[in-house]
């Protein structure tokens, strides 16, 4: 069963019995640890299927006495989910595309092309992380309402949400540290083969960086999916709302248990997406190209 395992713990190690046991123990340990991450939030959300009195009672019932999954139908009927999912997906895709093309490209330039002055830009990008977001909120919002120089009002469009994704210092740092790991030799070789500056990024770097791209998509996904602060400021028109805004709208007018059962609709899609995408983190870097 461990025959072809390579890596830190490889099939060589797993030949001996104590090592095999230790490895299985490690797996069991991680399965146990995983419960710490999964059970409490899952229990909280599923608690919303209890009737409202049981949901708010103290001490809470660990194993629910009542179970009303039909609350999901109530929420489903009251919110236009196909529209909400579509909107959320548009925001997600747009943000991901901007993140990869803006931050990825910039990180590549800073890491590999290193034109004169790019270091200053990099430090200026790093410096933005020092200022907490709240203080510049109003100034950012004013720029959204009146795009500098062009005087375009971007309110009630998805553009500010997309573009804000492009000014993500964290992503640039992550991308850069990955690109730093790609051997320069590879790029030199491609240069000799006559690959241009843009071709280098799309043909050589991107295929090598599948794991970091998938990672950035996953990180963006959880950020965008649950975000409501900027969407609330920017998307004043109801037709544009994402799923979290719609669920928050239930607040104050709906019983709390139904509000929380509505969260199920916000939680399931990203989890499915995660399970689907995480496989691809494994691919990418261990390609023959790098070793040679």
């Amino acid at each position: 069963m461990f025959k072809n395992k390579t890596g830190l713990i490889n099939s060589q190690d797993l030949k001996t019995k104590p090592m095999k046991i230790a490895y299985i123990a490690l797996t069991v340990l991680f399965l146990l640890i995983s419960l710490i991450f999964v059970l409490p939030p899952l229990w909280t959300v599923l608690s919303s299927f209890k009737d409202v009195k049981e949901f708010i009672q103290m001490p809470p019932t660990i194993i629910p006495r009542s179970f009303h999954p039909e609350k999901l139908i109530t929420v489903w009927n009251d919110l236009n989910f196909s529209k909400l999912y579509l909107n959320t997906l548009v925001i997600l895709v747009g943000t991901v595309v901007v993140k990869i093309s803006f931050c990825g490209l910039a990180a590549y330039v800073i890491s590999k092309m290193k034109p004169k002055g790019s270091k200053v830009i990099f430090w200026m990008i790093i410096a933005t992380m020092m200022i907490p977001g709240q203080v510049k909120l109003v100034a950012v919002y004013k720029n959204i309402l009146d795009f500098p120089l062009l005087h375009i009002n971007m309110i009630n469009t998805y553009w500010p949400l997309f573009l804000m994704g492009g000014a993500d210092a964290f992503m640039i740092v992550v991308y850069k540290s990955f690109f730093d790991g790609i051997p320069d030799l590879l790029i030199e070789a491609a240069k000799i083969d006559g690959v241009g500056s843009f071709g280098m990024f799309s043909k050589i770097i991107l295929p090598l960086s599948k794991s970091v791209i998938i990672t950035s998509i996953l990180l963006t996904m959880s950020g965008v999916w649950g975000d409501f602060f900027w969407p609330r400021m920017i998307l004043k028109e109801k037709e544009l709302w994402n799923i979290m805004l719609a669920i928050l709208e239930l607040k104050d007018t709906y019983p709390i248990d139904i509000q929380f059962s509505g969260l199920v609709f916000a939680i399931v899609p990203p989890i499915i997406l995660f399970l689907f995408l995480q496989k691809h983190i494994m691919q990418g870097f261990t390609m023959s190209g790098i070793k040679g």
Binding site: V98, S101, F102, C103, L105, A106, Y108, V109, I110, M113, P115, S118, I121, M124, I125, T128, V140, N143, F147, P148, L163, M164, G166, A167, I172, S197, F198, F201
Partner: peptide, 11 residues
């Protein structure tokens, strides 16, 4: 290639 990112950061 840096420009889009720089613009986003500016704004």
């Amino acid at each position: 290639m840096l420009a889009p990112c720089v613009l986003a950061f500016l704004i």
